[in-house]
Computed example of a mutant assay.
Amino acid sequence: MSSPETAPELPGYEHLYSGKVRDLYAPLDERGRARTDRLLLVASDRISAYDHILSTPIPDKGAVLTQLSLWWFEQLADLVPHHVVSTDVPAEVAGRAVEVERLTMLPVECVARAYLTGGGLGEYRATGAVSGITLPEGLEDGSRLPEPIFTPSTKAPQGEHDEPIPFAEVEAEIGPVLAERVRELTVAILARGNEIATERGIILADTKVEFGLRGFMGETGPLGLREHGEDCEIVLGDEVLTPDSSRFWPAEGWQPGRAQPSYDKQYVRDWLTSPASGWDKASDEPPPPLPDDVVEQTRARYVEAYERLTGRAFGG
């Protein structure tokens, strides 16, 4: 059985945290102290699904996510600044790590949808709305929305579910000025992503992005964000428009009314919930290891998404 990839020890860096997919380090200064202005962000080959870190990694996944994010940061540079400072990183993590500016991250998951599927579809079927936004009747799995919508969610601790929230709750959490700015930016990123992806035969159904504040000096609670955050520059952090944070569909296969073929980790989700896996999503049991063919097909989808979007051959 494979085991989840662990964070490597990197001379000159202090390991701070490991999330589902990424490992965070602080560069050490000349006195051996952790710097407070920079982070090393390392994308592992771990893959998560249904709030579980799977025991089987996907080879080259971390490099695909990192290289694709770097490409997208360039395409979005006129919309919003990003957090990357340098790609000069330790050899052990070359190609899958970036040095980034340390920001005050906003405590909201910023999600935009251009098509209806996934959790948004379930919410729509139950209520006729997504994150408090009423949608037209008769929409199906894969339906294109009249216009992209902002459907934020909570930023839950690891192992817990993000929950959709209405825009009013975002305003209460970070203040109306910041809330409006991140709504506009999230929808603009999705729209720009679709402009570019559509030319390459790919539909960008939805995406999740994270923003931070540059130069924030206050407390990170709602009052502090209202009082001190509204004048700060918003910066795009984490990753952007990757198969882990977004749903990519081949345009030629799009057909509303069913689940769409995809370039993202939906392939893994589908196997986990199929009879072949023998796993009950509602149980407390961890998911089983992925079989070799699922690993190979998932890697192939990530690489194909990178190559179709960027026009570059993936070198690993």
Rank of each mutant, 00 (worst) to 15 (best):
A172H: 00
L39I: 11
A313W: 04
P166E: 00
Y306W: 10
K265S: 14
P81L: 13
K155H: 08
E184V: 14
R181N: 10
I133K: 05
T154N: 01
Y50E: 05
G95L: 10
T36A: 15
G132D: 08
P166W: 00
V64I: 06
T127Y: 07
P275N: 00
R301Y: 11
E227R: 08
Q266R: 03
E252V: 09
Y13H: 07
L106H: 04
P243M: 02
M1S: 13
A94G: 06
G12V: 03
L79Y: 03
A34I: 05
L145W: 05
G315W: 08
Y306D: 14
S86N: 02
E180P: 02
V108S: 02
S153A: 14
P57G: 09
L76E: 14
Q75D: 04
G224T: 13
W254G: 09
G224E: 13
D23G: 04
S131M: 09
W279T: 00
Y50F: 15
E173K: 10
T87S: 02
C232W: 08
L16I: 02
L135N: 10
A205T: 06
P146G: 08
E9L: 14
E147K: 01
I165Q: 01
G128C: 08
T207G: 10
T36L: 15
G175A: 12
E285N: 12
V100C: 15
G193K: 04
Q67W: 12
G257W: 00
R35D: 12
A205H: 01
R200L: 11
A112R: 03
P81V: 07
E14C: 13
G12D: 02
R31V: 00
